[in-house]
Each structure stands twice: as C-alpha cells, then as structure tokens.
Write a protein that binds this DNA or RNA. Sequence first.
DNA 1: AATCATTCATTCACTAAATCAATGAAAGGG
DNA 2: CCCTTTCATTGATTTAGTGAATGAATGATT
Lengths: 385, 385
Amino acid sequence: MRARNQREVFEEVHRRGPISRAEIAANLHLSPAAVTNISAELIARGLLFEAREAQTGGVGRKAILLEVDYSLARVAGIKVSPTAITCAITNLGAKVEATATRALSETSPDTVVEGIGSMLEEMDALDVAALGVNLPGAVADDGATVRHSPLLGWRSVPIGQLLERRLGVPVTVENDVNALALAEAWFGYGRGHADFLALTLGRGVGLGIVIGGEVYRGPRGGAGEFGHVILDPAGPETEHARRGSLEAFLSDDALLRSARALGISVAEAASPEALTELATAEDPRANEVFTRAGEVLGRALCILVNVFAPTLIVLSGEGMRAGGLLMPHARRVLEGTAFGDLGRDVELIVDTWGDDAWARGAAGLAASRYLVGEASRTGGEAQPV
Amino acid sequence: MRARNQREVFEEVHRRGPISRAEIAANLHLSPAAVTNISAELIARGLLFEAREAQTGGVGRKAILLEVDYSLARVAGIKVSPTAITCAITNLGAKVEATATRALSETSPDTVVEGIGSMLEEMDALDVAALGVNLPGAVADDGATVRHSPLLGWRSVPIGQLLERRLGVPVTVENDVNALALAEAWFGYGRGHADFLALTLGRGVGLGIVIGGEVYRGPRGGAGEFGHVILDPAGPETEHARRGSLEAFLSDDALLRSARALGISVAEAASPEALTELATAEDPRANEVFTRAGEVLGRALCILVNVFAPTLIVLSGEGMRAGGLLMPHARRVLEGTAFGDLGRDVELIVDTWGDDAWARGAAGLAASRYLVGEASRTGGEAQPV
DNA sequence: AATCATTCATTCACTAAATCAATGAAAGGG
DNA sequence: CCCTTTCATTGATTTAGTGAATGAATGATT
C-alpha cells in the first residue's frame, strides 16, 4: 500500500515534470498530508528534490515544485544486433552521456557477454546502477531469459543471469521494440500519453503497444508482430519476410529490392542509406521507391489507427532515416482511408534513429526499472520487484 | 481502499465460480482474516452466499465455497437497431428469462424511448434494477450520451437521461460491439480470460478489445473500428462500406453482392439467411461465397492475431449463422499466415448469434455495472462509480 | 478409538497509513 | 495593514489491513 502510493507519487512527479505537492494530491486523489509524508521519504532517499518555486501569477502561497533527481545514478543500455553491440551510458533520465559500438564476429552468448563486459570496462562504466539489454527476439516474462531469437541464433539463453554474474549489476533483458516503446513512454514522446504506439522500421518492422503506461505483450507474450501482417497476398517477398507482409514492403531489404526492380543498380545504391541519399538528391526512381513505401506505410498505419484509435504514434528505427521521404505519402494515405477523423486526429512523430536510439531505449528500460524499484522500496526494507 | 478490495473479492468470486475464502486470499494476496471480513459484509448485503462445501478429496477441513447470488435482482438489456428494438430480461448472471422484439417504423429518440418504456411495461419488467442499452455508433464516456450514430441518424442524443427520466432506473448506454465484448468478458466465453477479442459479423464488422478484463476504447474512445480496415484497395465496395474494407467483404450486404456476382439470383437467395441455407444445401456457388468470405475472415484474424497475440477470439453476430461454413476456411488461412505458432495457439469460439445475443449483451452490460456498483459500495455510504 | 496433522475460517490485538481539522507559511489585494 | 487565498505541515483520529493464536472439521496414524 505504502509502496504502491510511493510509486504513484514518484511516477506522477516523473510524468508531470516539476509539480507541486498540492497538484499531486489532487491528481492522485490523495490527501495533501499523505503527499507530504510520501514525498518527504522520497526526498530523504534522494529520488526527488525540491526545485525552484512555481512562477504562477496567481494569489496565494507559491508552490514548491518537486522534481526527480535523474542524476542519482547512471545506467547502461546495450543493443545486441547480429553484427554489433551498441552501448549507451545515460543518467536516470535517459540522457546520453556516452556511446560506443563494437562489431561482433559471431553471436554466441559467451561472446556477447564478454563483449559487453569489456566494453563497459573500457567505457569506465562498471559502476552503473543497472543494465538494460535489448535484442531482436522473444524474451521471457522474467526479463532475463531469451526464449528464441532467430537472428542471433539463440534459444533459451539466460543472458540476464550470465551478465549479472559477470558484472554484478541488475540486468533487465527485453525485446528491442518493446524496450524502445518503454523508453518512449518513460523518457520520450510518449511521456504524458497513457496509450500510444511505437512503430519501428529498419531491418524489420516492429510494433510496441503501450497501454496504460505499460508495454502490452498479450496474454502469453508475443503481441506486436505487426511486421508479419500480410498486406497483399500477391505482394513482394524477401529472404526473411513472407510474401506480401509488411516487412516484405518496408524493411531495408525490401526497399533495396524495390530499388533494383526500378532499375537502380548496386553501384548507384548499395545500402538503404545510399538509397535515401539518392532520393534526397531527387533521383526520380529512388523517389518512387519511397513513394510506394510511404503509401504502404500509410496503409499499415491505417490498420493501427482503425483498431487502436491512438492519439500518438512514434515512428523510429533506422528506416526512419527516410522519414522525410516516407511520411508525406503515409500521411496522405492514412488521412484518406482511416475511419472518420481518426486519421487526422493522430499525431505522427518521427523520432531519432540509428543504433544509438536502440541503445538509449535499452538504457531507458534499465532506468525505468531502477526507478520503479527504488520508488516502491519502503524504508530500509527490500521489496520484491 | 476498502471499496477496492471488496470489489476485488467480489470479482474474484464471480470469475472463479464457487471458491473458498482461502483461495481468494491466496489469489489476491490478502490475508485470510481480511477475506473473512470482506466476504462477511458482502454476504450480509446479499451479494454473495455460502454454497455447498468443496468436494476435495484432500486432508483437512473442507472449504466453504462462496458464490455470487445472481438472483438478487433482474436487469433488462435493450438492443436498438435501425429497424427494431429487442429486449432481454435476465438475472444478474445474464441468464435470459424473457425476450421480446418490436419493430421500429422510425428511429427518433422519442420513439425509441417510448418503445422501450412500453415494451418493459408489457413484459412486466419495470422493477428491473438496471437497464443496459446498446446501439450502433459512438457513445460518450459518460455511458449515457450517443455522440454519433449514422445508422440511427442520431447526434448528441442524451438517451441515457431520457430513459432514466422515463423509467426511474439507472441506465447504461454502450456501443453494441463493446457491450457484447463486455458481456462475453463477464458472463460468456471471456470469463477467466483477462485479454481477448470479440469479433462480430452481421450488418457490419465490429471488434471489441478486452484488455485486463475491461473493454479497451483507446485514449479518446473509438478503438475497434476494425471493419473499416482496408484489406485490398482493389476489393469490392458496398453502399455503406469503403472499397476493399473488411465490411465490404464480410457484411451481410457484401455477402449478397458476392452471391449476385456468382450468379445467385434474388429469387434463389434474397437474404443472408437464405444464402446460408443455400450453401448448407451444398449449392456450389453459395459455397464459393462463403469460402471466399472465410478466407478473407482468415486474413482479418491474421492481422489481429499478429498484433494482439490473443489466446481467445470470440466470434459472434448474425453473420456467424454461417460460422460452420466460414470457420474452416478462416482457420486454414489463419494458421497458414499468422506469425509462428500464434495462429494455432489461439482459440476461436463461435458464439450464439441473433438479436437476442445483442440484447443479452446489453443486459450483461447492465448486470456488470450493477454488480460493480454494489460490490464497491461500502457499508451504508454511497460511493461514486 | 484416540490422537495427530492438516486445512479452512475466525478472533483479537496490533500497526501501517491513510484522512481530517487545525495551523503555519507565503504570497497578493483592497 | 489586514484579509483572503493557496500550499505545506502537524497531530489526533480512523480505517483497514496483518499476524498469531484459536476453533472447526476432516483424513491419516498408531
């Protein structure tokens, strides 16, 4: 009960930024006295601090605003991809202090663990309070075991325990898309939105569903496999994506394949980055690639908008490097085909992209877990999280 | 707090059927003492009663099983459609005691209110404890005002207040699909499932999303407009449904249109019912209609399964009169195209159909509201719901 | 048959943690 | 300069939980 309310107060301060005790009490339906008590303990434990006074012009005593002390500790976030691991060191507010990347020659768990360990040593970051790891694949509910990751070739790998043993730091493992969604919810554009969607484009197409501030995983996990939705049974297919699936239209591979079909040679554009540049340089064929992709993205968004009626969709991932090329077309299709005003009433935000963003997502995951754990820990007693 | 735990205990008894105090305590992480207290009050208020003892073969004192007293009151559920109103009188467990239907010549709010009132009088049901109303269209969060219902020609109609004034009974208004989903969650196949989907076929295609035992409406309502999802931009269109939308494939109108295209004359099958009979009688053209529709349904289910990874989808609505014809094809497509095992790991249940089911959904809505209200009401004090 | 172990339910003292009402603190307005 | 307003705090009170002991009802054990 106390733990619960502590956590509620803390999360309210986190969400609503600098906020007075009175407002917290009003928002959470608690008495001012209770908020005074709870916030006193959170301040004593260093999680909150009294910031400047409010600058309201109104009558009456000015409020003392509370803020979260994000500098209380540092955390590390690791993105494990088939070819590299990327690390971001951030404060508890997911503000990046340092990043680094290291190539992976192979993806065995031992190699990955060792790589992460030596990377943190080199970055002088062995003192972090928590470590978040995200990777492509299905992660068990325990936040530690990888159930299945085709891209890494892993099955039932207790990567969380392995890392905790190696580093002596609490580790949370999560699917990459879910971690990004969680980070958006806590520290990104999703802040203040109880419900929103996080769509990622890149090697694949991922969907993070945030409902009530939490990532929705479905009754037994596995929700959000939006990239495998079949949009057109007669559509294209790629090596990794089924015919007509969203990934077969929108993944990096799919875009390159589409470019080849339109006569763009490997010499002209070997990579998605190069293809994006080509389109930015007004190459009509490259533009056509992104026009078509944007329209497909619009159809995909239309499905999501009709089903969830969201007010916000955050788009990110490497594929969003071409956001400027894709979004006008996506928006046009969305507004033209979604039910009623749903297509116009949804905010579409393109977030930063690149592996750094993924690693920052992992760090945000770690930070949120750490903060939740601290905020719901009472007095000196340890509390199961 | 007390109200909250009372409600939790009550809902646990409702969900898990006859259940002992000890088990409630274990499931809700409450002390046995607290459960004794809370259940004593709920019993004193008539909501619960002590049923037979458990027949466990084990050692030790036998448990005294608690059950909800669904016969405590009766409720009425009304389905308002453009052509008729249907009424179901049920006990608090959504067990139907009587039904009736009355044609509507026009759908003005006054006519509907008067029709409902005289109908309840005729059914000798003016003593019901609550009234649930469902109808096609968007209903405001207050559970009383119809924001917009094209089919009824309503806009901003406070139908809830009108009915309460006429009948002196608490009224809850809800979108028809959401009400059906809620009824499934409380009294139907969704019992015991925190998360599931309710898909309805009939005049249109509707989706009710149940997450955490509650109907998900999205951040500002309007979620679940699945019928307007565009499956194929080059698909068919109908009078009411956009080209290629799910409704343009699967609604009653769409099926008839598809039948005409396959050479089935109006004389052979004037209605969806007749078309279903024709197919049941092995007419190859009619079978083709349902084969195609089943495959489209499978594609639609595939989208839902990939996004939500549900363990249960309940299918209902008038369109499910042809469930036996549709589902084999739908299931085949679903299992063939959904990601991984998701298509096989989902239970597809065809529920009863017809306007009675809709009205029962409305009654279930009323019953659940009534029970929640009673269960979270403390002592003699009134509690805001 | 008598006793013991086990499980469910209850009782009662205790306590955590909220609320309530009163009060202090810090502003602006007349 | 006092009054009103708003925010924050304090201490008494109340609510509603937990924990330990006890009673109740059963099967198992000797």
